[in-house]
């Protein structure tokens, strides 16, 4: 019993003696390093944490030789600051990551805004004309009989209103290329149909430019009777073949 009590007293003395000889700076440095090594610095600032570990090790070695010397206190002080610097470095990197994330979020939002604008354009166009998505782009088909009188390349008054509405919808994405194609039915000579379809395509192009669409982004092509979409044997089929198609291509940028 006496031996056990003696051992306890000896241990307590040893513990208290140890506490008394360990400078406060070293205790603070150990705590600071422990905090840093269990925090974000472990993953975000390993190099700085390693420096802090080395600084603490230097202080511990000095403490082993001369526990209360000014050198030990100063090295411990530096070790504590070193651990704090590792934590602050991790915090800086974390803030930079937030800025980068915000940049990515901004890009995603802007993409969403553009997507919505395009969707809005598609919906608006669908109300005005037949619209379909093909490999070459979004194809807006306007019936020739709605736009032009027979064998003529002058726009009908009602066609101008329709084209104005289409132009307004297209202006939502005016950085896209447009190809205006004039198509004819099989009646008449090839030369006549080719020339008429070219003129009609150019009239539609000019109208879109007059509404503000960039001229450099629109081309006009006369296709003639080469690409029918319906049977030319019937009057209905020929009416469907007489048409103007506006192909909305990719962005020019």
């Amino acid at each position: 019993m006496k031996i056990t009590t003696g051992m306890i007293l000896f241990s307590c003395f040893g513990f208290l003696n140890g506490c008394a000889t360990t400078p406060n700076e070293l205790i603070s440095a150990r705590q600071a390093y422990s905090r840093a090594s269990h925090g974000p610095a472990a993953t975000l600032a390993p190099a700085e944490l390693h420096k802090a570990k080395e600084a603490l090790s230097k202080a511990e070695h000095s403490a082993a030789d001369e526990p209360s010397s000014p050198r030990t206190r100063d090295l411990s002080y530096v070790a504590e600051r070193s651990a704090q610097m590792a934590e602050v470095t991790a915090s800086i990197l974390s803030e930079r990551a937030k800025v980068s994330q915000a940049g990515r979020d901004t890009q995603a939002i802007q993409g969403e805004i553009i997507h919505r604008a395009k969707m809005g354009m598609n919906e608006a166009l669908a109300k005005l004309a037949a619209v379909k998505v093909e490999k070459r782009g979004l194809v807006i088909t306007l019936s020739g009989s709605v736009l032009f009188p027979s064998n003529n390349a002058s726009l009908l008054p009602s066609a101008k209103t329709r084209l104005d509405e289409i132009a307004d919808a297209l202006l939502e994405a005016k950085d896209r290329t447009l190809i205006v194609e004039g198509h004819a039915d099989s009646q008449g000579s090839h030369r006549l149909n080719q020339a008429l379809s070219q003129r009609r395509a150019e009239v539609v192009r000019s109208h879109l430019i007059s509404r503000g669409y960039p001229a450099q982004n629109i081309e006009a092509h006369g296709i003639g009777k080469d690409r029918p979409i319906a049977n030319n044997a019937s009057a209905e089929g020929r009416a469907n073949n007489r048409r103007v198609e506006i192909v909305v291509g990719p962005e020019t940028r």
């Binding site: 602050v88 915090s91 800086i92 803030e95 930079r96 800025v99 915000a102 939002i109």
Partner: peptide, 17 residues
């Protein structure tokens, strides 16, 4: 001081988003 600058930049960027 660097941390303060970075924190303000991050705060502004997040607010803008």
């Amino acid at each position: 001081s660097h941390e303060d600058v970075e924190k303000n930049e991050a705060k502004d960027a997040v607010n803008k988003v």
